[in-house]
Every structure is written in structure tokens, then in C-alpha cells.
Design a protein around this nucleic acid. Structure first.
Lengths: 166, 166
DNA sequence: CTATGTGCAAAAACTTTGCACGTAC
DNA sequence: GTACGTGCAAAGTTTTTGCACATAG
């Protein structure tokens, strides 16, 4: 029973850790891998897959890392640029998920309990590329979100409350 | 040459105006169709298709309608609930587009000039429904956005600047 | 008449920025 | 040593809310 991912989505083994990939990215741009950045990457890639800036700050502080909100926002942007994170924008608050060493996938978003369910489907990318080609558009990615009501909420009289977790 | 819509996307003739549909919606909920709401619906459905809250307020004020920002936000939410508008969320600021009397379609988003290009594709809905069925998910809609670089920006040395229009 | 909506201004929610100090390379 | 990053607090953006007054039904 899929919760936030289906069970066949085993991580790919990719060369290098997220931290290494981030260092490479920064090196190319002449920027630095600092302690706060290292802590952030490690934390993000050693834990849950969906989060927002606020949760991340709270988690870090609870774990004893006094990393400022500003640095979190700045680093999240870098990680998206580096291709390590994906920005979701399901609501007006940005949510992030791993985008490295993890197969491409899309999402169903339950508008009752706010849960995010992942799925993989091969057709979507092909459709995307065909459409792009027809319009002379150079695709760099896509977002496919099915909005609706998840099976639990369709059934349940007491659905999980909204915003439990994204 | 598609700009914000392809030329085969002629509006359906639908029974009733957006204003009428909104009134029905409000009636069912025991709410009122007031003058500001009427002005808003008329304005929105007699003009451009993509806009955000801020543009809308400016437009209205320029047209001499002194409708408050709060009312605009409140009414936009109602119109989305009523199925008359669709919320896009391409950036952290919500954008809206007509979703009534206009065939379903999806979007390409140029990350260079921020332009939105519409397209229609039959496969997407079928894929969406098949995936939903397989997960016991009841779809109410979807968002499919292809991110990338539009043909003009791929070609041009001086692309349209970002935020020209959404 | 009365439940609902509006405008205003204030607050909340989210994100970015400026600057003095600190640190990776 | 120097260019780049950090934390802090302040400001910027976008959206929501509380409340006194207005109005649709």
C-alpha cells in the first residue's frame, strides 16, 4: 500500500553521494562547501523525502544545528539548481523532495488529507517530449500532479486531517 | 504560431454566462452575488486569460472599480471552488486562468521569459485516469506543466524579459 | 430584518536582503 | 589573504483576518 512512494521505487545506485555532487556543483561555480551547507545536505538526504523550508529549520534546530533560516532558504535554492532537489509548489508554500538517486516520478495530491502519493509512469515523459518537439520547446522537466481524493479519504469517515504532513 | 493558446482552442458554447454559473454556485451555498463579485466575474471573463491577484486589483482600479484587495482574494478563492477559474501556481505567486467554456488544456512554462504556452493533448487525461484507477484515487483534475525553454528563447539573443506577462 | 459581504488596516505567512563578522580555499 | 558565506534582524512579498459598516435576499 503506497504511502509516499510505491515499493518498486528502489533508489538507483548513483556514483557519489549528494554531498559530493553538491561539492562538484559548487566548485564549478567557484563557490564553497561550508559547514552549514554540508550539514544541510546530509540532513536532507538522510531523512524524509518531502519537506518545506519551515519544517527543515525546525528539524535542524531540534537536532541541535543552529542554522539560520536565511541559510536554509539560500541553500535550498542552490540544491534545486544543482539538480539535487525538486521544488513541488503544491500549495503556495514551496515543498521539496529528493531528486537525485531516485527515479523520476509524479504525484497524486489528496485535497482532503493533503497527502502526496508518488507514482511512476513511462508514458508521461514520452508524451511530454512529443508535445515539446511539436512546439519547438526544449523541456528541462515537468510537473504532473493529479488532484483528487485518495482511497482512504474516499472511504473514511474520519480522514487524516489536512497538513499532517506534505 | 502559439502565443498563449493554440488557434484550435475555440471556446465551447456553454449554457449560461460565468456570472450565471457563479450565482448558481452561491445560491446553493446560501451566499450572495454582490456588486463587487459581479464586477469581478464580468471583468475576469471579458479579458485576458492569465492573471494574478495583483494584476487584477490594478486592472480593476484602473477601470475605476474600487474593489479591495481582500475582496479580490476572497472572490478568487470562490471562483476556483466554483470551477470557473483554475489556479496555476507556476511560481510562488498564484496565477489564475479561465476554466469555464474553455476546453481542458495543459501548459508549457518557459523558465527564461516566463511565458505560458497552452496545448491540448488527449493522452494525458487517459493516462491520468488509468493511473488514478490503479491507485483507487478519485481524480478531480490535474496539472501538467512542462518546464523548459521556448523556441523564441532558444533562438533569441535577447529573449523577452522575465515577468513580462504570465 | 438579518445573515452575509465589504473595506480598511493590521497581522500573518513566506521569502529575500543588507551588513558586520567568520571561514574555506 | 581574500572572496565568499553566515547569522541576525529588518524589510519585502503575498495572502489572510478582525471588525465596524453596508447590503442582498
Amino acid at each position: 500500500m503506497p504511502q509516499t512512494r510505491s515499493d518498486d521505487l528502489a533508489p538507483l545506485s548513483v556514483s557519489g553521494t549528494p554531498e559530493e555532487k553538491f561539492r562538484e556543483f559548487l566548485e564549478i561555480r567557484g563557490e564553497k562547501l561550508t559547514e552549514p551547507r554540508r550539514v544541510l545536505v546530509r540532513h536532507i538526504f538522510s531523512s524524509h523525502k518531502h519537506f518545506d523550508a519551515d519544517e527543515l529549520v525546525r528539524d535542524l534546530h531540534e537536532a541541535g544545528h543552529a542554522i539560520s533560516r536565511a541559510t536554509v532558504y539560500r541553500t535550498l535554492r542552490l540544491l534545486v539548481e544543482a539538480g539535487l532537489l525538486r521544488e513541488l509548489r503544491l500549495t503556495n508554500r514551496s515543498a521539496y523532495e529528493h531528486d537525485y538517486g531516485y527515479p523520476a516520478h509524479d504525484h497524486m495530491h489528496c485535497t482532503v488529507c493533503n497527502r502526496v502519493i508518488e507514482f511512476r509512469n513511462e508514458d508521461i515523459r514520452q508524451t511530454r517530449d512529443a508535445i515539446s518537439r511539436a512546439h519547438g520547446f526544449r523541456p528541462s522537466g515537468h510537473r504532473f500532479v493529479i488532484e483528487g481524493v485518495c482511497s482512504e479519504c474516499s472511504r473514511a469517515h474520519t480522514p487524516r486531517r489536512r497538513l499532517d504532513l506534505i
